[in-house]
Design a protein around this nucleic acid. Structure first.
Lengths: 303, 303
DNA sequence: GCCCTCCCCAAGGTGGCCTTATGCTCGCCG
DNA sequence: CGGCGAGCATAAGGCCACCTTGGGGAGGGC
């Protein structure tokens, strides 16, 4: 079983023509070179070097091995360089999965920072809502999943925290839910409204996860919301609310990129927070490009 | 510094998808694989594997390394196979240097045997007289040198034995010198003649080495030969003797391939032996093709 | 003839590698 | 829901490989 170390030594010997010179070039002592060559000859089972006293020559097998060695060692250094490029952030790919309102706000800034700081890296983005995005992360389809979670409302959902316990959870920012009512609504001009003020209204809910949380919040406030519509699309929510079909709550982050046409936003009490986090696998968190991207995401979220 | 052993293990892990399966395939235990992979990740400085609990996946750096590994390991096995072919006599080159009367008698038979026994080997032949052929051997221009030597006549030539003391000397056969006289010579019909019978004759000597030995033999017999001609070419010796220009002695081996035209051969006393040997370097004697060729030479000489 | 270089050899110490044994987690199944 | 098997990590122990130091021998150059 030929080892790369043997080939490096053999090449040095073939190049310099002596054990001592090879040892100097390799930064070790001459007996070390001598032993390596003996070991290599033993592992190949045939003499590779001819010691004539004055000079060191290669046998036919030795020249054949040196001929192969150049290619093999070139392949090895190429591999090492590619790995080093990935480790040194001169290359590397990060596949990011984000939910829609995250990809429109957090991601672009972080992506720009990443591209500026490490031009060699490639960041790709796919949109998916949290349950699916975490699945993708576990299935190896991405390196980072942006997700969000709501705090336990009734303490009855231990799975919310346990769901990610084997993942690296990096908090990015916390936004809050804002009420959305039609322009002509009786509460449209209020400074703030209580959630119970909307108990009798028809609701327009968001994604399944948000919808479930909305129900929990309302139920802990004492009522069950009547949900007439559900859509992931925030402009659609505004459209529905603006058409007077109901009320809604919406993450503050979503407001940054959607114009509330025909609707008014009003802070809601009690304040409901939504925590936005970046998720990755423990091993992937140690990958430089992933780690750097997490930093950029956190940095973008911090501002 | 990536080692070939690491790549073999990594490839097995990537192929099987688990450490245990890789260990079974490699014929070692699972902790061994685990340690190897840890060492490899440490030497590359970046994670290569993602342990998700259920399955083992590669990171980008890992896939890059596996991609390189296939080429590197292919190169290594190719090198090992070529070496094994040389070691197993399915390939290999032996450059033979012989003196003329050897190459016309010993060499052809040995070469035919070698070709029959090991068709993959290549044997080349160059002619050179002993001092030069040994020099070629030492200079790496051949692997085997056929040479001859005469026993010490006066014990005054320690160099004759010392000349080859750092070489492997393989005796092939011993022939003897035969006297050559013109057909009409007074001793042409003798059963055998003493060397002193030729003390007053003009001599035709051979190569420098043979000539020197002739002088030594004659001087130890009590006279100094008068050498009128010297030539390496045995047919020329016969021609000169046949023309009555002198007498000569000649190795018995040379008579096999030269017709003694116009001259008669007569055994000479005291019998003078010439030892024909194959020379090689100690390291080269361990090269299978060289060793096999030495065997064939000895085998041919034995018959 | 002396010296320098180069190689081999032997001995000692250190580190790596493999093994066995053990604990843990996860997924499966009765 | 608890048992169970598979798979990985870790720790400890033994062994081997490797490197270093020190000494000896041989060859070439001044």
């Amino acid at each position: 079983m030929i080892e790369a170390r043997h080939l490096r030594v053999l090449r040095a010997v073939a190049l310099t023509g002596s054990f001592s010179a090879a040892a100097r070039e390799l930064g070790c002592t001459q007996p070390a070179v001598s032993q390596q060559m003996k070991a290599l000859e033993q592992s190949t089972g045939t003499p590779l070097l001819v010691r004539t006293g004055r000079e060191m020559r290669l046998t036919q097998a030795g020249t054949a091995l040196v001929r192969h060695a150049s290619g093999i060692l070139a392949g090895l250094t190429a591999a090492e360089e590619e790995i080093a490029a990935i480790a040194g952030l001169r290359a590397g790919r990060v596949r990011l999965v984000s939910f829609p309102s995250g990809s429109s706000t957090l991601v672009p800034g972080a992506l720009a920072q990443m591209r500026a700081a490490h031009p060699g890296t490639e960041i790709s983005l796919v949109e998916a809502e949290p349950p699916r995005s975490v699945e993708m992360l576990r299935d190896g389809e991405c390196e980072i999943a942006l997700a969000f979670r709501y705090p336990d409302v009734r303490g009855a959902d231990p799975a919310a925290g346990a769901e990610w316990e084997d993942l690296v959870v990096r908090p990015l920012l916390t936004d809050r839910l804002i009420g959305v009512v039609p322009e002509g609504h009786r509460l449209a001009g209020a400074d703030r409204i209580g959630i119970t003020d909307l108990a009798e209204e028809p609701w327009i809910a968001g994604c399944p996860r948000c919808r479930r949380h909305l129900v929990e919040v309302c139920e802990s406030a004492g009522f069950t919301p009547r949900i007439d519509f559900a859509t992931d699309d925030y402009p659609a929510v505004f459209g529905l609310v603006g058409a007077g079909l109901g009320v809604a709550v919406m993450p503050e982050l979503a407001l940054e990129s959607v114009r509330p046409k025909g609707a008014r936003t009003v802070p809601v009490e009690p304040v409901v927070h939504r925590e936005i986090v970046a998720l990755t696998l423990p091993d992937l968190a140690r990958v430089p490009a992933v780690d750097a991207m997490l930093d950029k995401l956190a940095g973008t979220a911090g501002r």
